[in-house]
């Protein structure tokens, strides 16, 4: 069953003493908007986490297999058995080859969660190989400017004999890591019911997506990330597939304000206020996590 409603969502997450998304251009410092000092987390960084969570949770099996994989989450040697679905071509008029391409693309959508959700480019000489996924994510941005701290750390071992000789057996090297003490990030997402129809993204996939957003940070622990946690997931559900209100009007209903003095170090330093009384008709607000 594909979707009959348009959705927008606001996903809030925070980071404590960690680096949510390193900038390869700045020696892996946390990404910041140079003009405002606000922290940034790219769309692709969050999509990677959704993929990893679904890969882990659904154990990489169709119809929830993940196309763009990270090695850590899968068993490489497994030969996947797919069910080749006999699809009826949508229109008889199309030339044979294009029909064929469409079938293959549809088949990929059916087996792979990430292709169905985010789309993929599978270009051949016919341009039906490109799928636009229904789920569109923007960059996440921190509410307040973030401050990056640089920490020098030492390692009590060396990698090579040569290094050991150089230090005459001292065997110590220094490294650096970057953290931000605290940052609350806000990400906006969009789900098009019309594009969901084209890729076959259904209600079950949608539930899985909310699940992934809520739980993915708990399965993405590492030395660099620090403590990242989901804080809130607010979903605007429109009555119609085309939507009932402009996305911006809905996002504006959610305000996040500082309620403490000094630098923020916790989610409790913020207050989220939602003007629910101003919710346009035909739009429902669902709080999956608060």
């Amino acid at each position: 069953m594909s979707l009959n409603n348009r959705y927008e969502f606001v996903f809030l997450f925070d980071v404590k003493d960690g680096n949510p998304n390193g900038d390869p251009d700045a020696g892996n410092l946390p990404r910041v908007d140079a003009e405002t000092g606000q922290g940034l987390v790219t769309d692709v960084c969050l999509k990677r986490k959704v993929r990893n969570y679904v890969g882990l949770f659904k154990e990489e099996t169709p119809p929830f297999e993940i196309y763009i994989k990270e090695k850590a989450v899968l068993n490489r040697s497994n030969q996947r058995a797919y069910t080749a679905l006999d699809l009826k071509p949508e229109s008889k008029k199309l030339p044979k080859k294009e029909e064929d391409a469409r079938k293959v693309t549809q088949w990929m959508c059916q087996n792979f969660f990430d292709i169905r959700t985010f789309g993929a480019v599978m270009s051949t000489d016919v341009n039906t190989g490109q799928v636009r996924g229904p789920v569109q994510l923007n960059f996440a941005r921190s509410i307040d400017p973030v401050v990056s701290a640089e920490h020098s750390i030492t390692r009590m071992a060396v990698t090579t004999e040569k290094e050991a000789e150089k230090q005459s057996g001292d065997n110590r090297t220094m490294g650096r890591k970057f953290t931000i003490p605290y940052g609350l990030y806000r990400c906006h997402g969009f789900i098009s019911a019309n594009l969901a129809k084209q890729t076959g993204f259904g209600e079950e996939d949608l539930e899985l997506l909310w699940d992934a957003l809520i739980n993915m940070l708990d399965h993405d622990r590492s030395a660099s990330r620090g403590e990242m946690s989901p804080c809130a997931l607010y979903v605007f559900k429109h009555d119609s597939p085309l939507g009932n209100a402009p996305a911006r009007k809905l996002f504006e209903l959610i305000d996040i304000n500082r309620i403490s003095e000094g630098p923020a170090r916790d989610y409790n330093d913020y207050q989220v206020s939602i003007r629910e009384d101003q919710l346009p008709s035909g739009v429902q607000l669902i709080k999956y996590l608060e």
Partner: peptide, 10 residues
């Protein structure tokens, strides 16, 4: 009906 698909990000 079987085969290895997928791209390895790293």
């Amino acid at each position: 009906g079987s085969g290895l698909l997928g791209i390895y990000a790293d």
